Amino acid sequence: MAPLTLAGIERAARDQLSPEIWDFVEGGSGAERTLAANREMFGRHAFRPRALVDVSVCAPAVDLLGATLQLPVGIAPMAYHRLVHPDGETATARAAGKAGALLVAGIFASRTLEDIAAAATGPLWLQLYWLRRREALAALVERAEAAGYAALLLTVDAPRIGRRLRDLRNGFAVPPEIRAVNLDPALMAASHHAGQGSSGIAEHAREQFDPTLTWADLAWLRERSRLPLVLKGVLTAEDARRAADHGVDAVVVSNHGGRQLDGALPALAALPEVVDALPPHIPALLDGGVRSGADIAVALALGARAVLVGRPAFWGLATGGEAGVGQVLDLLRDELEHTMALLGRPSVADLDRTALAPWPV
């Protein structure tokens, strides 16, 4: 029998992947408090279902930065999809397009930006880290715009990489046959080497990420592209207001999947204050801990325009390539529509904070 929940796909993926790659995908930083809290936070909300509502048709479609998503879900930016399946990002792109979902390709993608764009039939964004070599960033932005990417997403919570203890214990480095093919190999060399008690990912970030990034630097990126700019890693009202003041087009409420500052707010806990601080024309997305369609409904009710899912997409990719990612997205769609129907909220516009109450204790 096919898995009935994402948890079933997760178990199958764990059996499929080597322990060190599983730890790289699944691990968080520090004691992994924030990693666990991202999931647990959804359980603090109860639904307030309404009766005698026509729910014969439930419509989960949303508009986001000029595109219509048939499913209010995006695949979060993740590096090296070929770590878990030889087709890598092109398989993920095909599945996202068929589901009417967004794909955010990572700066460290293991397929070319052009190949990913050719495989995509839905909205496609490019994620960036701020590298010391600005000419490398500028070249990526130019290629993305030429290939038809619809937005740039800048990750802003990684001036340095969190202490990911699983990777340090494993001495994890990216296997030599898996490369970030959109960047100069010399720029990526450190990611392929690690010794005992070190991580190639951390060494590479120390070498290449620019920790001097400030709000003032956003103007440099704006000058080089007409594409909408999204900031990922916003957890406070203060930063939401700063983002709006700097003309950002959307924000992603995210703690990097619990992989950066351990002890940071769970993403769902931060969502309401960020939404309330943004003007209505700037949407917020939620990234972190979504594992069911019911979780998506909670995030939408708290003000998210859409959610990003990361690890579940890798589980699907590992277990079935394109079809596996499609299975993940289909499960999320079915569960979301089911939740909307039983909640008496047949459209995304009907999902607001009146749909929720604190879970009784």
Rank of each mutant, 00 (worst) to 15 (best):
M1N: 13
L4F: 14
L4N: 10
T5D: 10
G8S: 10
E10N: 12
R11H: 12
A12M: 15
Q16I: 00
L17G: 09
E20F: 06
G27I: 00
G30V: 07
A31G: 12
A37L: 13
G43K: 07
H45G: 05
V53F: 11
V57W: 12
L64T: 01
G66V: 09
A93Y: 03
R94I: 02
A95Y: 03
A99F: 01
L103I: 00
A105L: 12
A109S: 15
A109H: 07
R111E: 10
P123Q: 04
Q127F: 04
L128M: 10
Y129T: 07
W130T: 04
W130A: 05
L131A: 04
A139C: 09
L140M: 13
V141G: 13
A144D: 12
Y149T: 04
Y149K: 05
L154A: 00
V156I: 14
D157L: 02
D157S: 03
R163E: 11
F172K: 03
E177P: 06
R179Q: 15
D184A: 07
A186K: 12
I201Q: 09
R206G: 13
E207A: 13
D210Q: 08
P211N: 12
T212P: 02
W215G: 03
A216S: 11
R224G: 01
P228S: 02
L229G: 02
K232H: 04
T236W: 13
A237K: 03
E238D: 15
R241K: 10
R241F: 06
A243Q: 01
H246S: 09
G257P: 06
A269E: 14
L271W: 03
P272T: 00
P272E: 00
V275R: 06
I282G: 02
P283G: 01
A284E: 03
R291M: 14
R291Y: 15
I296D: 01
A299L: 08
L302H: 11
A306I: 15
A318D: 11
T319N: 09
G320A: 09
L329E: 08
D330A: 14
L331F: 08
L331M: 11
T339C: 13
L343E: 03
A349T: 00
D350L: 04
T354F: 00
T354M: 01
W359K: 06
